[in-house]
Deep mutational scan, measured.
Amino acid sequence: MDVFMKGLSKAKEGVVAAAEKTKQGVAEAAGKTKEGVLYVGSKTKEGVVHGVATVAEKTKEQVTNVGGAVVTGVTAVAQKTVEGAGSIAAATGFVKKDQLGKNEEGAPQEGILEDMPVDPDNEAYEMPSEEGYQDYEPEA
Score class of each variant (00 low, 15 high):
121 D>W: 11
5 M>H: 00
131 E>I: 10
61 E>I: 10
50 H>M: 12
67 G>F: 13
85 A>Q: 02
93 G>I: 15
94 F>K: 04
130 E>T: 11
81 T>M: 11
97 K>S: 13
9 S>W: 07
12 K>L: 15
2 D>W: 06
88 I>S: 01
72 T>N: 14
57 E>W: 04
3 V>A: 04
64 T>L: 14
134 Q>T: 04
49 V>H: 14
140 A>K: 10
30 A>F: 14
37 V>T: 01
79 Q>H: 13
95 V>S: 11
109 Q>Y: 09
35 E>C: 13
44 T>W: 10
3 V>I: 09
36 G>V: 02
138 P>M: 06
56 A>K: 08
38 L>F: 11
1 M>Q: 00
140 A>I: 07
113 L>D: 11
134 Q>L: 05
125 Y>H: 13
83 E>S: 03
20 E>M: 10
39 Y>H: 04
17 A>P: 00
120 P>D: 04
22 T>H: 01
40 V>W: 02
70 V>Q: 00
59 T>G: 08
84 G>K: 13
39 Y>S: 09
135 D>W: 13
86 G>K: 10
133 Y>N: 15
112 I>N: 05
67 G>T: 13
129 S>F: 13
36 G>F: 06
86 G>Q: 15
11 A>E: 00
79 Q>G: 07
15 V>A: 03
30 A>I: 14
139 E>Q: 08
60 K>F: 02
119 D>F: 06
41 G>N: 05
133 Y>F: 13
44 T>H: 01
100 L>D: 03
69 A>V: 13
57 E>F: 09
64 T>Y: 14
24 Q>P: 00
105 E>P: 10
126 E>T: 07
7 G>C: 11
13 E>T: 04
70 V>G: 01
112 I>M: 07
83 E>R: 08
16 V>K: 10
62 Q>Y: 10
34 K>E: 01
5 M>Y: 03
95 V>T: 06
139 E>G: 06
16 V>H: 08
78 A>H: 05
21 K>C: 02
107 A>H: 13
44 T>F: 10
104 E>M: 15
109 Q>A: 01
127 M>C: 07
8 L>K: 00
102 K>E: 03
52 V>N: 00
31 G>L: 05
130 E>V: 15
113 L>V: 15
5 M>D: 01
106 G>K: 12
127 M>T: 02
123 E>R: 08
80 K>D: 01
41 G>Q: 06
9 S>E: 11
40 V>M: 13
54 T>W: 12
54 T>I: 15
105 E>C: 03
76 A>E: 04
87 S>H: 10
140 A>T: 13
114 E>I: 09
6 K>I: 01
129 S>P: 11
82 V>M: 12
9 S>N: 13
62 Q>W: 09
32 K>H: 13
78 A>V: 13
135 D>V: 07
19 A>F: 14
46 E>L: 09
133 Y>K: 03
43 K>P: 00
33 T>R: 00
108 P>E: 05
85 A>E: 01
139 E>P: 06
19 A>W: 10
69 A>M: 02
122 N>C: 03
122 N>I: 03
118 V>W: 05
31 G>R: 12
61 E>Y: 04
66 V>E: 00
29 A>S: 04
13 E>A: 15
130 E>R: 06
29 A>G: 03
38 L>Y: 15
49 V>E: 03
28 E>F: 08
76 A>G: 10
54 T>Y: 10
82 V>T: 07
14 G>K: 15
126 E>R: 08
115 D>N: 08
115 D>R: 08
49 V>S: 10
30 A>V: 04
59 T>A: 04
81 T>L: 11
65 N>A: 13
124 A>D: 09
135 D>S: 02
47 G>Q: 07
10 K>W: 05
73 G>Y: 10
69 A>Q: 11
47 G>D: 12
43 K>D: 00
19 A>T: 09
64 T>W: 08
29 A>C: 13
41 G>V: 08
71 V>H: 07
96 K>Q: 12
82 V>E: 02
115 D>T: 11
11 A>L: 07
60 K>V: 05
79 Q>W: 10
124 A>C: 07
19 A>I: 06
50 H>L: 09
5 M>I: 02
58 K>M: 09
9 S>T: 05
64 T>D: 03
77 V>I: 15
77 V>F: 13
84 G>W: 12
37 V>E: 00
86 G>E: 07
23 K>T: 10
94 F>P: 03
88 I>F: 02
50 H>N: 03
39 Y>E: 03
131 E>Q: 14
108 P>D: 01
90 A>G: 09
76 A>K: 10
127 M>K: 13
65 N>C: 11
58 K>D: 00
132 G>Q: 08
130 E>I: 08
102 K>G: 03
54 T>R: 15
73 G>E: 04
63 V>Q: 01
59 T>L: 06
96 K>E: 06
121 D>S: 13
33 T>Q: 00
132 G>L: 10
5 M>L: 01
48 V>T: 03
72 T>S: 05
35 E>L: 13
64 T>Q: 06
78 A>N: 01
103 N>V: 15
122 N>Q: 10
43 K>W: 08
26 V>E: 00
35 E>Q: 03
52 V>Y: 15
10 K>C: 02
93 G>S: 04
10 K>G: 01
104 E>P: 15
127 M>P: 04
88 I>G: 03
20 E>N: 12
62 Q>S: 13
100 L>Q: 13
71 V>D: 01
19 A>G: 02
107 A>S: 14
119 D>P: 14
136 Y>M: 09
41 G>A: 15
12 K>A: 08
29 A>I: 14
107 A>E: 04
89 A>W: 15
5 M>S: 05
43 K>C: 09
88 I>W: 09
133 Y>V: 08
89 A>K: 07
128 P>A: 11
51 G>S: 04
96 K>H: 11
56 A>S: 15
27 A>E: 02
97 K>M: 05
84 G>Q: 14
48 V>H: 00
118 V>R: 09
22 T>G: 06
59 T>I: 02
26 V>D: 00
125 Y>V: 11
54 T>C: 15
92 T>G: 07
25 G>W: 02
129 S>Y: 09
97 K>A: 09
76 A>N: 07
2 D>S: 12
79 Q>V: 08
10 K>A: 07
11 A>I: 15
8 L>G: 00
80 K>M: 06
41 G>T: 13
1 M>F: 00
103 N>L: 11
31 G>F: 09
17 A>W: 08
68 G>V: 09
70 V>F: 02
49 V>N: 02
65 N>I: 11
114 E>F: 14
10 K>L: 10
131 E>M: 02
68 G>A: 04
42 S>R: 15
25 G>L: 15
61 E>K: 15
137 E>H: 08
90 A>V: 05
25 G>C: 12
66 V>Y: 10
13 E>H: 02
64 T>I: 10
126 E>Q: 01
32 K>M: 12
40 V>Y: 07
109 Q>L: 15
9 S>M: 12
44 T>S: 09
12 K>H: 05
112 I>T: 05
13 E>L: 04
8 L>N: 00
8 L>S: 01
124 A>Y: 13
41 G>M: 12
94 F>E: 04
137 E>L: 07
47 G>P: 01
35 E>K: 14
68 G>T: 10
97 K>C: 04
119 D>M: 07
43 K>F: 06
9 S>P: 00
51 G>V: 15
63 V>P: 00
120 P>F: 10
23 K>Y: 05
24 Q>R: 07
89 A>R: 07
129 S>G: 11
132 G>Y: 13
96 K>W: 06
33 T>V: 11
3 V>G: 05
24 Q>A: 01
136 Y>V: 10
32 K>G: 01
42 S>F: 09
125 Y>W: 14
118 V>Y: 14
118 V>C: 13
134 Q>D: 13
126 E>L: 06
68 G>K: 15
88 I>P: 02
110 E>K: 12
131 E>H: 15
79 Q>R: 13
138 P>Q: 05
67 G>I: 12
133 Y>P: 07
73 G>W: 09
121 D>Y: 08
32 K>P: 00
35 E>P: 01
128 P>Y: 05
135 D>Q: 12
135 D>R: 14
124 A>M: 05
72 T>V: 04
125 Y>E: 05
28 E>C: 05
